[in-house]
Write a protein that binds this DNA or RNA. Sequence first.
DNA 1: ACCATGTTAGAACGTCGTTCAATACCGCGC
DNA 2: GCGCGGTATTGAACGACGTTCTAACATGGT
Lengths: 212, 212
Amino acid sequence: MTGTRRKRLEQPREVVLQAAMDAIAEHGLARLTMAGLGKRIGISGGHVAYYFGSKEQLLVETLRWSEQGFAERRRALLGATEVPRAERLAGYIDLYLPDERADPRWTLWLEVWTRSLADPDVSAASAEIEGPWVADLRAMIAPHPDPDGYVLRLHALLDGLATRIVIGAPGPSRAEMVRQATEFAVREAGVAPAVEPVAEPGADPRTNHTDR
Amino acid sequence: MTGTRRKRLEQPREVVLQAAMDAIAEHGLARLTMAGLGKRIGISGGHVAYYFGSKEQLLVETLRWSEQGFAERRRALLGATEVPRAERLAGYIDLYLPDERADPRWTLWLEVWTRSLADPDVSAASAEIEGPWVADLRAMIAPHPDPDGYVLRLHALLDGLATRIVIGAPGPSRAEMVRQATEFAVREAGVAPAVEPVAEPGADPRTNHTDR
DNA sequence: ACCATGTTAGAACGTCGTTCAATACCGCGC
DNA sequence: GCGCGGTATTGAACGACGTTCTAACATGGT
């Protein structure tokens, strides 16, 4: 096994991933090359390829790593049960959407979507990375008569808004989008005065695969 | 001017565009090369580049051309004033969304979005190609208290659903998505059975910027 | 018939991801 | 301490691709 005899690994994986995020933020994904990324951290381009298998896997791993930080903040929102649900949903949405045009995290999402078309592995990874968002949103709105439909609609809406923000399409400001999305999310979350019967809150059984 | 003395143009532009669509449908955009596309129609790869300026412009033009056919069908929906609005909205949504995973038209949309990040020209073209959809949707729901917000929300929702369909993400079927989106569209369009008073149809003043 | 202009093929070029052979480095057993 | 097996790492080679360039070719007006 590789457990005991762990290679020296002078460059922790995170150094490369952080460098990739920085490079994307500075010059865009289109100008990210293996050689250029290597030069940023003092290793050869060929070694980056050896280290991650392929550029595609590097990008997927960078996105996955980037999402980890968001998972923590999202979980904090989940735990803040004293905050009204509307505010927690607003926080979720604010966390979900890209900060601005060319946001590196969402740049990666677009790239991953595109590559999903040609590579089933990327497609699977994409779904897996999105998983925790789905799980946490479900927990946040539970109990809900149709959690699947709710998540689908809200996430679809958010993906569409995110796309517009990240490519810089003409339209309203990000703040306005957050407002509109939050209104939608709150309305659909518990608009129904039709209360569902005996449903103890916070005890939804769908633990979902929050692996890795 | 180039009006009178029109080069011979043996290969009409449409032949190339159709070939590009076919190639994308068959093998995906990732495997579309200038040389390969040329071979499909019996011209050299170098000439395709000369003819369209760059691969990027070729892709944008292919998307624009592909959208033309949809514009006609959309306009037909607009004119069908005898059909109830709910059905017309359902038709619009059915037209908007990709047919299936790897739908070539939506494959192009994803690619154009991605390239929008690096190239302002593509970004502008993307907005321009979307324009007619916006204009027709506005006309379809007029009069509406907040047409901008309505279009933003519905199109964002549809873009998110479209992304899921085209990349083949796990989730409900396309038909179910159409159902959900239509429900949303109808509800937000004129939830009020409050019929609009004296509003002669098709005379809404917001002509929208259909510049090109 | 001739010439200017646009068209076309095909080769040359530069970039990039990937692969490969060679070398440097480390941990371990002797 | 000292090789030894295996990993890490480099840098070059390779192949694919978009783009560019050059040279030939066709066409339409005069």
